[in-house]
Design a protein around this nucleic acid. Structure first.
Lengths: 197, 197
DNA sequence: AATAGTGCTTGACGGTTGTCAAGTTCCCGC
DNA sequence: GCGGGAACTTGACAACCGTCAAGCACTATT
């Protein structure tokens, strides 16, 4: 990777930090530059415009989190262990990377109004669906069963629970995270069928 | 209702129309006023500031859609009929009120960054959960069974599927709506247990 | 060491934003 | 019909936005 790409990543890092705190609507290019070692003019040196920067940020964000559960998949030796570890990891990432997830749901909502965001959102959403499916597939395998729903359905339901927990956590519901654990524990068995009795 | 409240509702109507088209981030008070019979100054005559207006809009939005599925609940005489009618109604509202739903998910995401939106979002979210739970509860009753998950879990999963379908529809996936129907058909039986064999 | 070119800063631009004060029009009670 | 307050318009404000041109600093090559 050459120097040019390094700087783009560095700026994307600063941008993600700022966007994660303020959200898309209230983050200006000057805010991003303030949270970086550079001045505001440099952003137009490395990116065409604001949306080009955000497009890059979205894809960069994905690269950092798409393998988040792969260790859980690889290390778990039984269905219940996988279920526990997966639920714990979901909670962990809300606690440790909350702003990043908030930003993701923000950007995804923006993509319904801002057409230029759509390709990146579609791309990342698909990789997240794949990531979830690897968990479900492994869970079925460890249960000696087969998945009972489509990847899209599994991702949609799990994402709904995750999104609700993130929202609850942001809105100050103090039982949002334990509730998520319970919900995931309840949901995973529903995603498979034909397991060994 | 006095004249003052009538005008507030009228302005909220114009605001929702504009916000539904442009989204929160790109809608200005002047845009809203342009889509109304009044000038931009009148908004500060009826609302304290922009967030006060949006707070009012969110609650007003809820009042219009919270009973959307009650007719389905009342008219259905069997579990499969309810399931069909509910899924059809979900699709119908995406088609006919798409912008309003897009706005809702946008505002809900904004509430994670803008504290002043939180009370209204929390309030509406709860009424939506109640609305979904009335469907699930009736579905269990018609199935001679009992619900197998909490209202929050049922709402979270269903909302995840609905959100994904709305997003898919906005992003141009032409099978988003039929897929939603299939997913809802698959999900509802999972929400109950102990039905008559 | 002179120079060319990359990397970065600075400052300015036109436009838009929320907000509000001042002024105008309209309507209702007397 | 006349006065007064409510309803609404207009215009202006300070601040902020994305963008970009101009210039400075630094580095590497010759």
């Amino acid at each position: 990777m050459d120097r040019y790409d390094e700087r783009r990543e560095q700026l994307a890092e600063s941008a993600l930090k700022t966007l994660g705190e303020l959200g898309y609507a209230r983050t200006s290019l000057r805010d991003i530059a303030t949270n970086s070692p550079f001045s505001h003019g440099v952003l137009h040196y490395y990116f065409d415009d604001k949306l080009d920067l955000i497009d890059y940020c979205i894809r960069y964000y994905k690269a950092k989190c798409v393998t988040r559960y792969d260790a859980v998949i690889a290390d778990s030796t039984g269905p219940d262990e996988l279920r526990e570890a997966f639920a714990a990891k979901l909670v962990e990432t809300i606690v440790e990377e909350g702003p990043m997830h908030r930003l993701w749901y923000d950007i995804r909502a923006q993509s319904m109004f801002e057409h230029r965001l759509r390709p990146a959102v579609t791309y990342v959403d698909q990789t997240l669906e794949d990531m979830v499916w690897r968990v479900i597939d492994r869970y079925a395998e460890l249960s000696s069963a087969t998945p009972a729903l489509s990847p899209a359905a599994a991702y949609g339901m799990l994402d709904g629970l995750f999104h609700a927990a993130l929202l609850g956590e942001a809105l100050g519901e103090d039982d949002a995270l334990p509730t998520l654990v319970d919900q995931v524990h309840g949901l995973l068995p529903l995603t498979i069928e034909g397991g060994t009795p």
